[in-house]
C-alpha cells in the first residue's frame, strides 16, 4: 500500500485555480448548446472582440474531430497554435461533463505552449439541451440557443437553459421569418432562470457580440480580483 496525501507535483485537482508553477491559471468559459445555434460563430466573434485586449485560446469539442477548429482557423480569428480540437468519440457531452480529462489536457497544454493566457474558451460539440459543462473543467458557462430552434426552448428549460451562467438567444434577426416571439422567449427565460442573465443577439452586425463580450470581461474581472 502506498496511500499518502502529500501533494507537491503538478496539479491533479481539475478545478485548481493555480498552475503547477504557482501562477494563477486562465479563466475558462464553456460554450454549449444545440447543433447549429451559433456556438462557433459566437466563439469567433468573441475572439475578434477580445483578442487585442486579452491573451486568448480556444478548445473545440467536435462531433467530427476538427470541423469547428478548422472553421476558426479558416476565419483566422486566432493564430493556429491557440486553437486545439479535442476528439470526443461521438459523445461530445461526455467530454465536457462526465470525463473531462482530454479537455483538461488540452487547456493545460495551451497554457504551457502559448501562455500565459487570460481566457480559454471551451466550445462543446453541438449536442442536446441537457449537455452542460463540469465545474471541474470551466469556471462559467454560456448556453447558446437560437430563435429558429423553436421559441418554446426557454419554456422547456433543461439544465443548459436553466443553470448556465449566461443564456444567449442567437439569430434574433431571423425571428420575423421563423415566427418566433422574442418577448415570450424572454419571459420564459426569466421564469426559468430568475436573476441569471440572458442576452439576445444577432451576429449579422459587427456589434452583435458586444453584450456577451461585456459579460466575459466582467467574469474575468471577478476571476482576477
Amino acid at each position: 500500500m502506498h496511500l499518502d496525501h502529500h501533494h507537491d507535483g503538478p496539479a491533479a485537482v481539475s478545478a485548481d485555480a493555480h498552475r503547477p508553477n504557482g501562477s494563477r491559471r486562465a479563466l475558462r468559459i464553456g460554450l454549449g448548446g444545440p447543433v447549429g445555434s451559433g456556438k462557433t460563430a459566437t466563439v469567433a466573434a468573441l475572439c475578434r472582440a477580445l483578442r487585442d485586449e486579452l491573451s486568448l485560446a480556444v478548445v473545440t469539442n467536435d462531433i467530427y474531430t476538427r470541423e469547428d477548429a478548422e472553421f476558426l482557423l479558416r476565419e483566422a480569428v486566432l493564430p493556429p497554435e491557440r486553437i486545439t480540437a479535442v476528439e470526443t468519440g461521438a459523445c461530445p457531452h461526455t467530454a465536457i461533463r462526465d470525463d473531462i480529462s482530454a479537455n483538461l489536457e488540452a487547456v493545460e497544454d495551451l497554457e504551457d505552449e502559448v501562455g500565459p493566457l487570460d481566457l480559454v474558451l471551451v466550445e462543446s460539440g453541438g449536442d442536446n439541451l441537457t449537455a452542460t459543462f463540469s465545474k471541474g473543467l470551466v469556471d462559467a458557462q454560456i448556453f447558446v440557443i437560437d430563435v429558429a430552434g423553436g421559441d418554446d426552448i426557454p419554456r422547456k428549460g433543461g439544465p443548459g437553459v436553466t443553470t448556465a451562467d449566461l443564456l444567449v438567444v442567437n439569430k434574433t434577426d431571423l425571428a420575423p421569418y421563423v415566427g418566433s416571439d422574442l418577448a415570450r422567449m424572454a419571459a420564459d427565460a426569466k421564469a426559468q432562470r430568475a436573476e441569471l442573465p440572458v442576452v439576445f443577439q444577432s451576429l449579422r452586425t459587427e456589434a452583435g457580440v458586444t453584450d456577451v463580450a461585456a459579460w466575459v470581461r466582467a467574469q474575468l474581472a471577478a476571476w482576477t480580483a
Binding site: H2, L3, D4, H5, H7, G9, A12, V13, E105
Partner: peptide, 23 residues
C-alpha cells in the same frame, strides 16, 4: 495521451507520492 489522462484521474482518486513521482 491516455496515460496522462489516467494519471490525472488516478492522482485525484488515490493521491500518492508514487503517482506524483511518475507524473
Amino acid at each position: 495521451k491516455l496515460g496522462r489522462q489516467l494519471m490525472r484521474a488516478a492522482r485525484a482518486t488515490w493521491p500518492s507520492v508514487e503517482l506524483d513521482a511518475l507524473a
